[in-house]
């Protein structure tokens, strides 16, 4: 089986460690990882920057975190090159697991640290400063999505139907927040999208 050849196993190990490394050195969310991705992939010969930008647009369109989606795709691509279809499926697992490893390690360590500092005033002051920043960052992330959904070519073209759809959802949330599940709203809006865009 070529998917379990020595060469294929070597690629799986590389996928795991490269994505581990990317995970460790990226702060501030998926898109912050893009430059790291490009450098590493070219070094490994897995794909060119251009190919990767195609992957990125697919990763943004499919469910889940952008970085995880990209890792799965690249793992499939690199694995398939050495081990056929099965190799791709296995490569995807190794790449994705590699990306998740630093998160698990760091979060576990941090949780333990925070537990010890529970009543510490400095820790509380630290979070007092960081919480408003987090809200601002979430607002900014929302604005970034809005920018690409509502406008095109830097505000020269306005998608009024997306703005109206967004406002309707906002009104629904204001009055029926407890009754509707966000998943249902997303599903309904996807169907509406097929008809109005």
């Amino acid at each position: 089986m070529e998917a379990f050849s020595l060469e294929a196993l070597k690629v799986y190990a590389e996928l795991y460690f490269v994505f581990c490394k990317i995970g460790f050195f990226s702060f501030g969310g998926g898109l912050a990882m893009v430059p790291l991705f490009v450098v590493e992939f070219q070094k490994q010969g897995w794909m060119t920057a251009d190919q990767f930008f195609d992957v990125l647009s697919l990763a943004q369109m499919t469910p889940g975190a952008i970085a995880v989606n990209s890792a799965t795709f690249v793992g499939n691509e690199a694995g398939m090159a050495v081990g056929g279809r099965l190799g791709g499926i296995i490569g995807g697992v190794f790449a994705t697991a590699g990306l998740a490893t630093p998160s698990v390690v760091c979060i576990v360590a941090l949780t333990e640290l925070l537990r010890k500092l529970k009543k510490n005033k400095f820790k509380q002051a630290f979070f007092f400063g960081i919480k408003p920043v987090t809200i601002a960052l979430i607002l900014f992330a929302g604005w970034k999505i809005a920018e690409t959904t509502f406008f095109e070519d830097g505000f020269s073209e306005i998608h009024w139907n997306s703005i109206i759809l967004c406002l309707i959802v906002g009104i629904v949330l204001k009055f029926y927040e407890k009754k509707v599940h966000p998943i249902a709203l997303i599903a309904v809006c996807s169907v509406i999208g097929i008809f109005i865009f």
Partner: peptide, 26 residues
């Protein structure tokens, strides 16, 4: 097209969450 619809919805959802977090924590 479906993705465009989902994104319009997500903008509203995030906006709503930001508002709730803002009211609750600031």
């Amino acid at each position: 097209k479906a993705f465009m619809g989902a994104r319009a919805c997500i903008v509203a959802l995030i906006g709503h969450s930001v508002w709730k977090m803002f009211k609750g924590s600031v």
